[in-house]
Design a protein around this nucleic acid. Structure first.
Length: 1040
RNA sequence: GCGGGAAUGGCGGAAUGGUAGACGCGCUGGUCUCAAACACCAGUGAUUUCACGGUCAUGCGAGUUCGAGUCUCGCUUCCCGCACCA
């Protein structure tokens, strides 16, 4: 009886659902294991084969852990707030909630198709009011806390108020705005309510502020730094400009050091950790205040990591936007400076970044005074100094910094050496710290290690600077001028923000008529009529909504306790599940989601709501599955009129097309684009007239005298595995320049396949003739219509080699609808079954690696599943397993597999697991072993990979409960041992032959036996053995 | 420029310092078929040899070692991230 995945799989999907096989309980004597996938944004395009990769791998781990006796939480949900749904709403007027729900339904169908062990009772959706109620609730907690540097954690703002009332902010070490003034208790107590409120905003962990933001006019919203790439929006590629706006902000900078330190505690990839470190960008140095010549009390503060080089500072550079520039510029330089500022303002970020090497700047005419040697140094402005980093001013040390050196050389400024070991400064700057200082006042003769503390303490003593830590990390802008997001639970009264009453949560997103900003430029929520607090007149809700990362910064806790309407997650649940044991998702979230999530989690930890600082102990990034570039074929339209439809098939995708159809109006379009995988093209031409005039076609094509590729296939339903052979035939036909015909008749229509592999080398002649002629025959027309399809190569790689051959190869690119290279998992599941699809995705290669999708290889996995099935059920349907005792060989084969598969799941090496299953099956087949004692453990091991098939066989083996609750087989090392060992024998490290000897032989016995071997004697003829190495159980090496 | 990772047959990819290329695809031959397909069996890195066998092969160049794809040093190329960050 043939393996029939379709029947088996639908049967067990229904059974699992009815039995609630995947329901997880929060109370269990078993150890817990929480495995989490990054939840998807449900886009309208649905899933392609790349999406489920991580889900499948983690599903295997989840099922494996369950078999190993863990209580496993393996949930799934949707990150369902987001821009695409809103953009779609703007275009169509359809409420984002509606389109999102539709998309989710489609995602769910696709996910269900693959047979995951998700506990769907725990599904979360970030756009569900019952979910975002708690996102809003956490926002409120952030608002009510500040970061205390002494306690090194978040504390309630109430405690801060108490301290202000007693002592003002003297002695308060807390993270706050830079411009926070010192106040006394009296100052505080005299403040009006409003003034106090505004003052507290300088401390709160979330607060509104006027700040420069990345404003994207085309999208009508603010973007966070990580949503902007190269000066344009990451999504859509629209230009982004800097704009001053009042925005909610998250004081993530308070957690900079902890976020940095926490990276040492987690088992995450080095690359992600580095990216986060980079993003946080901690650098240790000093801030120094330079007086300005002729301006009493005016100082320019700079940040430097090389305070030791300060005596080599021969000029100073300010960012063009620096506050002091207008004030310091001398009349003589006014025109110069104005011109430069104007010019820099006109440059886009993109231009500025791409012209890094160009030295530009202007002299303000003013001078700063170096505090150490009282030297007057000129002040320049230049856009290589960034307004947004440090203080927007640098002391320029051309001897030690290449950029300063370039600037000095360009403007003819002095370059003073400060270290005796410094290299020739005529060619370039020397940033090294070797040697002793010269020309350096109080540090002359010192080394770097001595100089830094000397200078720093001098600065602090004289009140001109101090040691300082600088971060690249900015506070995170938390407002979006958008509709489809969580409303901020805040109302404004007298220009001051207040939290709404907690009882009002969730603050539900109101309906609006249009999803665009208002004419006056207010966010879409301004359109919501009557959306304002009811308890007092004249109040307004906050009109911006939260960004996409709000809901995803804590969602894993909701899975622990998804229906709780009293708490975001009960103490009980969070104490049981603790945190995520293994988090799996794409590396594109390296800094965005993964950094914000850690920030929120640290905060939740601080206020005692969760037990762990870091929310995910282990993180694995799955690679991307890429598409292959497509060829676009173009054909004259008229040939298709009335006669046929053309479907483009990805290999094995029966139901893929039609991707294009004949137009009714010939004027309208004269060409059609066809898209194919580069190296494998299948065109299916479907006419609706049946014919038996094969001979006519043969004759017609022969008469044409060209290399024609004409192929008829019937029984399309059975052609799954025929395709490869067909392609091979055609390839052969191409090579031999012969025509190939295959004649069969389809049940309903004629099908014509043309296929060839383009990967490889072609002579130019061959290349020029690369085309497809398709002949069409109708019942009564012998004169066949010919359709010529000429390839237009798009995205494909063609190279003309020196020997005159063309090479065609495919290019790997992202899988996307617009590139015609999307492969849909549904098609794969329909064709081969979910089990096969799951295993093939794993078999492609290591989960962490990116790799191109190639459907061809799936037949290998399908064949394996069929053969595995064949170990249990013969072709005529007989049940094969017997209760016969297994032989030593049987057990050796089984336990080898247990060892390898167990080890490989543990190290997340799913591709080798699949190959071990193949080896196991092949060996059992070779042994003709159909023993229950061997087959039953094999079924259990296969269950995480191919759950449907395993469940079916498990039942047939006589079990009534699910295979998910079976026990993972235990390895017995004794069965791995063999009586004899085959030693590879090397002579001088080169393999010369093998010898077989008893496993108990001593090294001396092995040596003696080896010396008797014919191949050893032959190779040792006339030379002296210097050394004889026997590694027991491994290898023999004879050194001569 | 800085940081992270990678490089192995025609292809995807295997190899606790111990027989390089597991497993699969593709390809070749065979069995079965009127002929195909499916299935099954065998072969398949390059080169040399009638054959036995030999030689060369893990991006390049050194080194450590009885033995290196694996470890060390120096390069090359590619991918990813960051980038006038003072």
């Amino acid at each position: 009886m043939e393996y029939a995945p379709r029947e088996i799989e639908s049967k067990w999907k229904a059974w699992w659902k009815a039995q609630r096989t995947y329901q997880v309980n929060n109370h269990s004597p078993k150890p817990k294991f929480f495995i989490l996938n990054m939840f998807p944004y449900p886009s309208g395009a649905g899933l392609h084969v790349g999406h489920p990769l991580g889900y499948i791998a983690s599903d295997i781990v989840a099922r494996y852990k369950r078999l190993k006796g863990f209580n496993v939480l393996n949930p799934m949900g949707y990150d369902s707030f987001g821009l695409p749904a809103e953009q779609y709403a703007i275009q169509t007027g359809i409420h984002p909630a509606v389109s999102t729900a539709q998309n989710i339904q489609r995602y769910r169908e696709q996910l269900d198709n693959i047979g995951f062990s998700f506990d769907w009772d725990r599904e979360v959706r970030t756009s569900d009011p019952q979910f975002y109620k708690w996102t809003q609730w956490i926002f409120m907690r952030l608002f009510e806390h500040y970061y205390d540097l002494e306690a090194d954690k978040a504390l309630p703002i109430k405690e801060l108020i108490a301290r202000f009332e007693k002592n003002g902010n003297h002695g308060v070490r807390a993270v706050c705005d830079e411009d926070t003034p010192n106040i006394s208790a009296a100052d505080w107590n005299e403040m009006s309510d409003k003034a106090q409120h505004i003052f507290l905003l300088k401390y709160r962990l979330t607060f509104p502020e006027e700040s420069y933001v990345n404003w994207c006019p085309a999208m009508g919203t603010v973007l966070s730094n990580d949503e902007v790439k190269d000066g344009v929006s990451e999504r859509g590629g629209y230009p982004v400009e800097r704009k001053l706006m009042k925005q909610w902000s998250m004081r993530i900078t308070a957690y900079a050091d902890r976020l940095l330190d926490g990276l040492n505690e987690v088992d995450w990839s080095e690359s992600i950790k580095e990216q986060q470190r980079n993003w946080i960008g901690r650098s240790q140095g000093a801030s120094v205040r330079f007086a300005v010549d002729g301006y009493e009390g005016v100082f320019i503060e700079v940040f430097t990591t090389r305070v030791d080089t300060i005596h080599g500072a021969t000029f100073m550079v300010l960012a063009p936007e620096h506050d002091l520039v207008p004030r310091l510029t001398t009349p003589a330089q006014q025109a110069d400076v104005d011109g430069y500022i104007k010019w820099t303002a006109s440059r886009s970020d993109l231009e500025r970044m791409s012209e890094v090497k160009r030295v530009t700047g202007a002299n303000t005419g003013a001078f700063a005074i170096n505090p150490f040697n009282n030297q007057k140094i000129p002040i320049y402005i230049a856009d290589y100094v960034l307004a947004g980093y440090g203080t927007g001013a640098v002391m320029a040390v051309p001897s030690g910094d290449q950029r300063d050196w370039n600037f000095a050389t360009h403007f003819g400024l002095p370059i003073v050496p400060i270290l005796d070991a410094q290299q020739d400064l005529n060619e370039a700057a020397d940033p090294t710290k070797a040697g002793r200082y010269v020309n350096s006042g109080i540090i002359n003769g010192m080394t770097y290690e001595e100089a830094v503390p000397t200078l720093t303490s001098w600065l602090e003593k004289n009140g001109l600077g101090k040691g300082k830590v600088q971060y690249k990390l900015r506070n995170a802008v938390f407002s979006r001028q958008r509709y489809w997001g969580e409303p901020v639970p805040v109302y404004w009264k007298d220009d001051v923000p207040h939290l709404i009453d907690e009882k009002e949560l969730p603050l539900v997103l109101p309906n609006i008529d249009k999803y665009l900003p208002t004419e006056s430029g207010e966010p879409p929520l301004a359109r919501a009529e009557g959306w304002r607090p009811s308890f007092e007149e004249g109040l307004e809700y906050e009109l911006s909504t939260m960004p996409g990362w709000a809901g995803s910064s804590w969602y894993w806790y909701r899975y622990m306790d998804p229906h709780n309407d009293q708490e975001f997650c009960s103490k009980d649940a969070v104490n049981y599940w603790q945190c995520v044991d293994w988090y799996i998702g794409g590396s594109e979230h390296a800094v965005g989601h993964l950094l914000y999530s850690r920030f929120w989690n640290h905060f939740l930890f601080d206020i005692g709501l969760v037990p762990e600082r870091e929310f995910a102990k282990k993180l694995t990034n799955q690679g991307m599955i890429q598409g292959r570039s497509s060829l676009v074929y173009r054909a004259k339209e008229r040939f298709y009129e009335e006669y046929l439809w053309i479907k483009v098939l990805q290999p094995f995708f029966k139901e893929y097309g039609p991707m294009f159809m004949p137009a009714n109006n010939a004027e309208e379009a004269s060409t059609y684009d066809f898209a194919f995988e580069t190296n494998d093209l299948v065109i299916e031409v479907v006419s609706w007239k049946k014919t038996d005039k094969i001979e006519a076609i043969r004759k017609a094509s022969e008469a044409d005298g060209k290399r024609l590729l004409v192929l008829f296939i019937e029984e399309l339903a059975e052609c799954i595995n025929q395709h490869e052979r067909t392609a091979a035939k055609i390839r052969r036909a191409l090579d031999s320049r012969e025509r190939f015909f295959m004649t069969e008749q389809g049940p309903q229509y004629e099908q014509l396949y043309v296929s060839y592999n383009l990967t490889g080398k072609y002579s130019p002649e061959c290349f020029s003739k690369l085309h497809v002629d398709v002949y069409l025959v109708t019942d009564d027309v012998l004169d066949v219509e010919k359709v010529r399809v000429q390839p237009m190569f798009q995205n494909a790689n063609f190279k003309l080699d020196e020997d005159g051959t063309f090479t065609c190869s495919f290019e790997v690119e992202k899988m996307s609808k617009s590139k015609y290279n999307v492969v849909n998992p549904d098609d794969m599941v329909n064709q081969y079954g979910a089990d096969c699809f799951r295993m093939y995705e794993m078999f492609l290669g290591p989960v962490e690696m990116s790799k191109p999708w190639d459907t061809k290889g799936i037949t290998g996995v399908y064949g394996f599943l069929r053969r595995f099935w064949g170990l249990f059920i013969s072709e005529n349907g007989a049940w094969l397993p017997t209760d016969e005792a297994p032989t030593r060989d049987d057990l050796r084969v089984l336990h080898t597999a247990i060892k390898k598969i167990t080890e490989d799941i543990e190290r997340f090496s799913m591709n080798t697991c699949v190959s071990h299953f193949m080896i196991l099956t092949n060996e059992l087949r070779a042994l003709k072993s159909y023993k229950r004692a061997v087959l039953e453990p094999a079924v259990v091991m296969l269950a995480p990979f191919a759950p449907h098939l395993a469940e079916e066989l498990w039942q047939r083996l006589g079990h009534e409960t699910t295979v998910c609750d079976a026990t993972w087989p235990v390895l017995n090392e004794d069965f791995l041992k063999t009586d004899t060992i085959i030693y590879p024998v090397q002579i001088n490290g080169k393999h010369r032959g093998n010898l077989e000897i008893s496993a108990s032989a001593t090294p001396a016995e092995v040596e003696a036996f080896a010396m008797q071997q014919e191949f050893v004697r032959r190779n040792l003829d006339g030379v002296v053995v210097k050394k004889f190495i026997v590694i027991p159980g491994r290898i023999v090496n004879i050194v001569v």
